[in-house]
């Protein structure tokens, strides 16, 4: 595989992980909102936020809190996306040619909104923010499907 293809694969995997990550938070918000009182649901979302990864092999002090894992996933998605633009795959074979289109601009705006949403949600996890982050992710994936030829 060429470098563009490798980068495209990294971007796909990172996007898949970001999708799973925001889906997880949305499901936790929904599940806890349905089965616990608001104050208890908020407390439990905070417990989830403070949980650490990985759960073995690494000393506890070096384990990452879930928001940090989220930041890493977003960073890999962003960097691999920027690299895809820089590699500027030829439009003739279905790539972007390094060009900015309205659809790509919309994707980038939504990604910035997702980054902001993640920052806010991880300070204080609340259901509306977590749902919004998930919907932003879905919108970004849907737009990405229409960027491909």
């Amino acid at each position: 595989m060429g470098w563009y293809q490798v980068d495209a694969l990294v971007h796909l995997v990172a996007s898949l992980l970001v999708t799973g990550y925001t889906l997880f938070w949305a499901i936790m918000a929904l599940a806890l909102g349905r089965t616990a009182r608001p104050a208890e649901a908020a407390r439990l979302l905070g417990v989830v936020r403070d949980s650490r990864w990985p759960h073995v092999l690494v000393p506890f002090s070096l384990r990452l809190r879930l928001p940090t894992v989220g930041w890493l996933l977003l960073a890999v998605a962003a960097l691999s996306g920027v690299l895809a633009g820089l590699l500027g795959h030829s439009v003739a074979v279905g790539g972007m040619g390094g060009a900015m289109t309205p659809l790509l601009a919309l994707k980038l705006v939504l990604f910035v909104a997702l980054v902001a949403g993640h920052a806010l949600a991880m300070r204080r996890p609340q259901a509306p923010l977590l749902y919004m982050n998930f919907l932003l992710t879905v919108a970004i994936v849907a737009i990405s499907a229409n960027l491909m030829r």
């Binding site: 990550y21 889906l23 879930l66 499907a145």
Partner: peptide, 26 residues
Amino acid sequence: HLLAAMLWLGHMFVWSLITGPALKRV
């Protein structure tokens, strides 16, 4: 096609590799 793949595989990978293990030690 892409949405279905992202949601299914995202759920699979994140639950199995990240959040499932993280919640074990709460």
